[in-house]
């Protein structure tokens, strides 16, 4: 027992907290002895950081209280180039806490990739994305190679008037992952497309929690999370859509689909709607299934072996997410990573 472990016990939620019912935080932080902070090396500047008032997510508060300083990126103008923000390695027994502010200025149109390439340790990152009026951004949280690393992300997005966001969260065979994503609609006519991919094998744990809050009307949000589980992998998806009384004409759609390739894999899904406005269109759907037997037979009936047909069907299932990533080189790279991971 040391002070760090004590600190973790105090600050982190337990399974009694409903939002952390599925993510076993004790296991998540097992073996952690130190907490350090880091600031991404290539930031435009370093600024003080605190999560927005009213934020209650304990791990996020923990990261913010530790990190204090944030790497600040101002994105202006229009460009097809990709801004990479690299999350470097952490040692096996440490949590490295980071905070990142991505400030997408009015009328900007930019691409950002937050790249989790660490092979070890625990990377905890708070990301605050400010989408100014009339701004557009394509953002990818990217982790595409098998890794022993643990990843915690807490992303908050504020959407001002007519902002357009495409955000994807990619996790391929990471040991333990918890992604929280909150989108706050603060100005009318804003649009977002949210995608998530989780490929979990062996005893991987990959959890995605999203909260989309519509405070104003005439905004759209379309979410699709898909995953493939094998071995004893466990995943959770929890998606909450909140439509406040003034948010008339909201269009919100949320879909989560998991494919199980083994008997021991488990995919939890918890879609939730809280709607307080009457003139809105909101849907959610969730499926957990296996490879479609009719599709498998049809492919075999054309001479394709069962093994090859299975691979093609699984890749087809998750490649839908790659098609939703608008940054061409990332989409291509994702297709390759998916095929290599199966």
């Amino acid at each position: 027992m040391n002070t760090t472990a004590f600190l973790l016990d105090e600050i982190l939620p337990t399974r009694k907290s409903e939002d952390y019912l599925y993510t076993d935080v004790a296991q998540f932080t097992a073996g952690i002895e130190t907490v350090t902070t880091a600031v991404c090396a290539d930031a435009d500047s370093v600024v003080d950081f605190a999560l927005p008032e009213g934020e209650t997510d304990k791990p996020a508060l923990f990261v913010a209280s530790k990190a204090k300083k944030a790497a600040y990126y101002a994105l202006e103008g229009q460009s097809d180039e990709v801004k990479y923000i690299n999350i470097d390695d952490a040692a096996d027994n440490e949590i490295v806490a980071r905070a990142i502010i991505i400030d997408v200025k009015a009328n900007a149109k930019r691409n950002v990739v937050v790249n989790f390439a660490s092979q070890s340790g625990f990377s905890a990152v708070d990301i605050y994305i400010k989408m100014a009026a009339e701004s557009a951004a394509n953002v990818v949280l990217w982790q595409d190679k098998p890794t022993k690393a643990r990843i915690f992300t807490h992303t908050i997005v504020d959407m001002q008037k007519s902002a357009r966001l495409n955000i994807s969260t990619i996790n391929i065979r990471a040991a333990q992952v918890r992604n929280n994503l909150r989108i706050n609609y603060l100005g009318e006519n804003a649009e977002s497309q949210i995608s998530g991919l989780y490929i979990a094998a062996d005893d991987n744990r990959i959890d995605n929690f999203t909260i989309v809050r519509h405070a104003v009307g005439h905004c759209t949000c379309e979410q699709l999370y898909k995953g493939v589980l094998s071995g004893k992998a466990v995943t959770a998806f929890s998606g909450l859509i909140v439509v406040e009384p003034d948010a008339q004409k909201t269009l919100a759609n949320q879909v989560n689909r998991s494919m199980l390739l083994s008997k021991d894999a488990r995919a939890y899904a918890k879609p939730q709607l809280e709607i307080y406005a009457d003139d809105v269109r909101c849907n959610h759907g969730s499926t957990t299934g296996q490879i479609d037997k009719d599709q498998l037979f049809y492919m075999q009936a054309r001479g394709i072996s069962e093994e090859e047909a299975r691979q093609m069907l699984v890749a087809a299932f998750v490649c839908e997410i790659a098609e939703r990533v608008p940054i061409a080189q990332m989409a291509d790279s994702l297709v390759d990573s998916i095929k290599n991971s199966l």
Partner: peptide, 8 residues
């Protein structure tokens, strides 16, 4: 009834 295979 030919089977639909979205994504392939």
């Amino acid at each position: 009834y030919p089977t639909e295979i979205p994504g392939v």
